[in-house]
Design a protein around this nucleic acid. Sequence first.
RNA 1: GGCGACGUGGCCGAGUGGCUUAGGCAACGGCCUGCAAAGCCGUGUACAUGGGUUCGAUUCCCAUCGUCGCCUCCA
Length: 458
Amino acid sequence: MLHLYDTATREVKELAMREPGKVSIYLCGPTVYGPPHLGHGRATLVYDIMRRYLTWRGLEVRFVSNITDIEDKIIERAEREGRPWQDITTKCETMWWRAMDAINFERPTDIPHATEWVTEMVEMIADLMAAESAYLTDDGVYLDVQSVPGYGLLAHQSLEDMRSGGGDREVVGAAHKRHPADFVLWKLSKPGEPAWPSPWGEGRPGWHSECVVMSLGILGEGFDLHCGGQDLRFPHHENERAQAVAWGREFARHWMHNGFVVDAEGEKMSKSLGNVSNLLDLVDQYDPRAYRMVLLQSHYRSPVTISATNIDAAVASLGGLDGFAGRARSAQLDPGASSSVAPDPEVMAQFIAAMDDDLDTPRATALLFDSVRRANTAMNTRTPEAGALVAAVFEICTAVGLELSVAADVPAEAAAKAAALDAARGAKDFATADALRTELQGDGWTVETGPSGTTLRR
RNA sequence: GGCGACGUGGCCGAGUGGCUUAGGCAACGGCCUGCAAAGCCGUGUACAUGGGUUCGAUUCCCAUCGUCGCCUCCA
């Protein structure tokens, strides 16, 4: 079974399932106050690949990912632009799904919104108050982290060390808090701000509270896996866990974090540095599959550079894969063909071994390309094993969410030119044939002329 | 200050104490082709630096240099 690095224990260990055959996963989703960027894209793609793979292995995956639709950033923007905050969240969420659909992110099984879970959050906070793990100040309710055993599990730092760090950084709400690391569970609202009722006054939930309540509410105690970007490890995930512990609930049993997206200079893309690239720009300008391909070729925990060079190389490699898919179809060996056979078992075993080893997609991708080469050779020589190899290639692509474009839409005009090209070649009128080919290439087509005629590909 | 990651061939990017030492992109040579394209075959003295351990290190250890991340904005 799948083995994954666990941030809490810092070792690769088997992803244990609470219920055999069923996997429960919670992924921290976006706060909808701006356009999705490359970092969001990586986080969703990494887990999309994992989720598809687990499903492909025959497991029933419950994959929950939230939308944070109430948060300070949203309120700030609403005030700045003088429009209702719901206007921002609905528009940004629409944009989010447009980008996610473009990169072929399979929708989660559950998509809870923070605003739908406020009542449950208030109940949790009341419990924490009753247990004296939380306290009220004049601006909200805070969690007393010193009351939480094992605080720092994910940060791998003691409260002491965390405190000595930070340095000149301003501690949010320092004046009200018992400890600098204490964080807000319920924020009392100022006039005009969005507000929900609570025993402590009207207000809104703190960022860290929603994910605890929603993950436990939907998946139940001791769910299998909690994941997100490295930047959520601390404080967000640490604080989620702290609330669960203080609440007396068993939380996630395994923690997974993906590496950052870095720019050409090797610096992390982050909103505060202002070096984020819009995910929609990427999918509009390039083959939307290119991002997935780049990520497949690097390990999910390593930082990955996204640059034109990188993406271009991925686009080129996808072209090769599409060409392969086209050839497979011509040979009646693609998955839809009646003569299709079972995927080569040895290739599939190697694929599973790679993926089960902490999602070693680089190794799996190498295997994919090796299999493509073997399948090409087998097709060229019409060897019987071609079918199984071709099937293995398609199978791997399915398992990682890579769609090969088998049928390129060739406009009638281009198709006519291709036919004319073949006719000219048949008549040994090579001058005309070459002219037609140059013309087609000028239109951006890759012109492949084989024994059975000319095929076009973009 | 504390914790952590990393430095691989033209570029991207895996991995390993010695065995044909990934894969992608690009380049070059060949096969194929009317010529190409696509495909296939082949080519490139890669592992930051200095020590150490070892029969043997890119892989282990130490040091140095460099890059990056986290230590309450962030996927």
